[in-house]
Amino acid sequence: MFEARDVIEVIGLLRDGGCRVWVGGGWGIDALVGEVTRPHRDLDLMHDATQEPTLIEILENTGFAERHDIVPGRPARFVMRHPDGRELDLHPLTFQPDGSAVQPANDRGDVFPYPANAFATGTILGTSIACLSVRQQVHFHQGYEPTDRDRHDMAQLRRIYGIATHF
């Protein structure tokens, strides 16, 4: 499981190493809400693809190793696991001059778009964290059958931001 202090530690290491990262997934929701609302099995991080070699080196130096058994995997994402069981789900972003970004979706050249306003700031344990925006989180939670965790996460955004979500 990924604990809040682990999130702060990993992000701090990457920041100190010069890597830009944004928290997504459940921890991204909790950052937007400003409190830990549920247990988390992993940490989703979007990262600047140009910094990926440095990011991997930093993570490997702290014990993380890439898993090659994850589907779907590259180019859309890759997973690194620590011997203690913590997992990072890493999503490479290619930034455009206007501040927007794209993430590869598959080998055919399809992409997941991130408009410039997809990036926001939240807090975990009182620490400022770069994360995905409320709008981007809601967008990424569409088009599939939601899990109980997804339903919980969208309920948190409705509770705090008073927005409508599709589930």
Rank of each mutant, 00 (worst) to 15 (best):
Y114W: 15
E66V: 05
R149D: 13
T121E: 13
D98W: 02
I58L: 15
H82M: 08
D98P: 01
D69S: 03
H68E: 14
V111D: 04
T94A: 12
H82Y: 04
M80E: 07
S100T: 01
R108S: 14
E57R: 12
P146D: 10
D150C: 10
H91E: 02
M154D: 01
L55F: 04
F64G: 03
C131P: 03
N106M: 03
A120Y: 10
E57N: 07
F119Y: 10
D98F: 01
Q136M: 15
L59M: 14
F119M: 12
D110C: 00
E66M: 13
A130T: 05
T54Y: 01
D107W: 10
V71E: 14
F64Y: 15
G143K: 09
H141M: 10
R86M: 11
D84W: 03
F140D: 08
N117M: 08
R67E: 14
Q136S: 02
A155C: 00
Y144P: 08
A130I: 00
P75L: 09
Y144L: 09
T94Q: 08
P113Y: 12
S128C: 00
T123Q: 15
G99Q: 01
R77V: 10
P113S: 09
T127I: 03
R74C: 02
P53H: 11
I129S: 04
F112N: 12
G73A: 08
P53K: 15
P115G: 05
F78V: 08
Q103R: 13
L125A: 15
L88G: 13
T62C: 07
R67T: 00
A101T: 03
E60Q: 14
F95D: 08
P83R: 10
G122D: 07
L90N: 06
P75A: 06
V102R: 09
T62H: 15
G99K: 01
L55M: 12
G73R: 06
P104K: 02
V134S: 00
H141W: 01
R67D: 08
N61G: 15
G109S: 08
N61W: 02
D89E: 15
L88M: 07
L55A: 04
H91C: 03
V79G: 01
T123C: 01
A120T: 09
C131I: 05
N106C: 05
E57Q: 14
V138T: 09
L93M: 13
E60A: 10
H139N: 14
M154Q: 13
R86K: 15
G126E: 00
P97G: 08
I124H: 01
N61T: 13
A76S: 12
E145Q: 11
A155K: 08
P113M: 06
T121G: 02
D150W: 07
G143D: 05
R67V: 01
E57S: 12
F140Q: 12
Y114V: 06
Q156H: 06
